[in-house]
């Protein structure tokens, strides 16, 4: 992997008896767009809080550009642009004034960069308006602008496309891709799996505070597609198919269909016909991130 920008080792957070995050390990290389997925309450926000030095880790460490980050030692964060779920803007000040306050923290002098960022996120005409009058999408754009203000090496974005219309989502996707191509590393949490699939190079799926899958998006999706067969007695067919050598799973889905994994569609049809069951239709179910995510998180919930 290229230069490691963000490294997390055995990151754990316990609140009394509850373990919010458990032994999370991941590395994000320079110029990567890394997706951090998980259902609500899976520990994404707590993990991001620890990465940004806002929450004390019970165990483990976070390193940004090789330097450890903790709430008391957060110097490396000056190379990070963060967009939080709760934006943190002062509602009675304008968008421009809010960015100006962030600029002062970074030691940016003058309004030039602020105008530039407002234009970059499509908020230039609304810069003078109070944030309290902004729509959810406008606040998202402003938060993204705030994250970009200091041209950070690492962007940490919590649900960046939340509240945006489809055109806005595409703009953000393109912007992040351009930034990554220019060497900016992006670490984003999202529940918009389709978005993540389109934009991310790698993903980690978090469930109950534990990383249950991690890797290159293309590799994670690279698995045999399930065969869907429609038969008159799906329960009986599914039970029979479980005896077929090589079948990893055979489950009834959507009423009359049986989803079979681990063997080819030809093998499934031949097996059923031999036993007098003639499928009325046969198709393949292509895996996408959403079904993978559902499968992984369902396993976690069942176990």
């Amino acid at each position: 992997m290229s230069e490691i920008v963000l490294e997390i080792r055995q990151l754990t957070k316990r609140y009394k008896d509850i373990t919010a995050v458990s032994d999370v390990n991941l590395s994000v290389g320079r110029g990567q767009i890394y997706g951090f997925l998980g259902p609500n309450g899976s520990g994404k926000t707590t993990s991001i809080g620890m990465i940004l030095g806002l929450i004390h880790a019970t165990r483990g460490e976070v390193r940004i550009m090789g330097e450890a980050v903790t709430p008391r030692q957060n110097g490396p964060l000056n190379q990070v642009g963060a967009m939080l779920g709760q934006h943190g803007f002062v509602p009675y000040l304008s968008g421009e004034e809010n960015l100006l306050m962030l600029a002062r923290i970074h030691g940016i002098v003058g309004k030039g960069r602020i105008k530039e960022v407002l234009a970059q996120v499509g908020l230039e005409p609304a810069g003078q308006r109070k944030v309290s009058s902004y729509s959810m999408g406008m606040k998202q754009r402003l938060a993204l602008g705030g994250a970009l203000l200091d041209r950070p090496k690492l962007l940490i974005l919590d649900e960046p496309t939340n509240g945006l219309d489809p055109a806005g989502m595409r703009e953000v996707r393109n912007l992040l891709r351009t930034l990554a191509d220019d060497g900016t590393t992006v670490f984003l949490s999202s529940h918009m799996l389709h978005e993540v699939e389109q934009i991310c190079d790698r993903v980690a799926v978090l469930n109950h505070g534990t990383v249950v899958a991690e890797g290159n998006v293309a590799k994670l999706l690279e698995r045999p597609a399930a065969t869907l067969v429609r038969v008159p007695s799906p329960e009986i067919a599914a039970t029979m198919l479980r005896d077929l050598e090589g079948v990893s799973s055979a489950e009834v889905v959507q009423g009359n269909d049986v989803a079979v994994s681990g063997v080819s569609a030809e093998e499934v049809v031949a097996f059923l016909v031999d036993r007098g069951i003639i499928p009325s239709s046969v198709s393949t179910d292509q895996t996408d991130l959403e079904s993978l995510f559902m499968e992984i998180t369902k396993k976690g919930a069942d176990s």
């Binding site: 030095g53 963060a82 709760q86 943190g88 803007f89 962030l102 923290i105 940490i156």
Partner: peptide, 15 residues
């Protein structure tokens, strides 16, 4: 309550 403190501290500002 507004999260301003979180936003500012996330930029490397010390408490």
């Amino acid at each position: 309550s507004l999260g301003t403190m979180r936003l500012w501290l996330s930029r490397g500002l010390k408490r």
